[in-house]
């Protein structure tokens, strides 16, 4: 942990509810969170506890109903869709449970995709990442030709290729078997630390959570 570093995520009293037939259902009910550069944080909790919702709010994929939320200096309460998109594109790497690769692009094109979007494409870095992720031999393949573990490694590479200061990972091993999940998680954490990148990891796995610098548990809409 590097306590002298700038605050990457700052959340104060975040509230989020979703509409339902029986009226709004509060998912986050006053969440406070502070995260500094280079830190890795695991968010655990039961299904439906709001882990992914918190991650989506930090990533600017959704907006809070109340409270204050700033990510990498951007006030997400006031940022419009375009500003939130720019934040994600240029400063955040995202890793999804479903991998979310672009099925019609090759592994090489998927790996470089977000870095190119951000205008920070470095072929040497992509090649190095591919080597580190064990993808060098698979660069010409399409996602459907890969196993789940391979696809998730591509997703991790895509998130890190542009060297973003923040990576958000939503159940990155949820679709993988235990051994593969462990290997992929170890690889991800290793690369994140090498880059001194801040990581927010949402997971069910206490074993995976234990690998992070800090752990928080989400229960009844609050962090414990």
């Amino acid at each position: 942990m590097s306590s002298g570093k700038a605050e990457v995520v700052s959340a104060r009293g975040i509230v989020k509810a979703f509409p339902s037939a029986a009226g709004p259902v509060a998912v986050l009910n006053g969440v406070d969170l502070a995260l500094r550069g280079g830190e890795s944080l695991a968010v655990t909790g039961e299904s439906g506890s709001g882990k992914s919702t918190l991650l989506h709010l930090i990533g600017g994929l959704d907006v809070t109903d109340g409270g204050a939320l700033a990510v990498l200096g951007t006030d997400l309460r006031t940022a419009d869709d375009r500003a939130r998109a720019a934040l994600r594109r240029e400063r955040i790497g995202m890793i999804f449970q479903q991998f979310n690769l672009i099925p019609s692009l090759t592994v090489a094109a998927n790996l470089a995709f977000q870095a190119r979007l951000a205008g920070r494409h470095d072929p040497a870095r992509v090649a190095a990442l591919a080597g580190a992720l064990g993808l060098s031999q698979l660069m010409g393949r399409y996602p459907e030709q890969l196993s789940g573990g391979q696809q998730q490694r591509v997703a991790i590479g895509r998130a890190l290729a542009g060297q973003p200061p923040l990576v958000l990972a939503d159940e990155p091993t949820g679709n993988l078997d235990e051994a593969t999940g462990d290997a992929v998680a170890a690889l991800m954490l290793d690369l994140v630390r090498q880059q001194d990148t801040t990581l927010v990891l949402v997971t069910h796995s206490l074993r995976l959570a234990a690998l992070c610098d800090r752990q928080v548990h989400l229960h009844a809409g609050r962090l414990a």
Binding site: A85, A86, I92, M94, F96, L101, I102, F113
Partner: peptide
């Protein structure tokens, strides 16, 4: 649809 969602999640504005 999924590709569009991914693009937007990766920071491409809807417009």
């Amino acid at each position: 649809r999924q590709v569009v969602r991914t693009l937007r999640a990766l920071g491409v504005p809807l417009a």
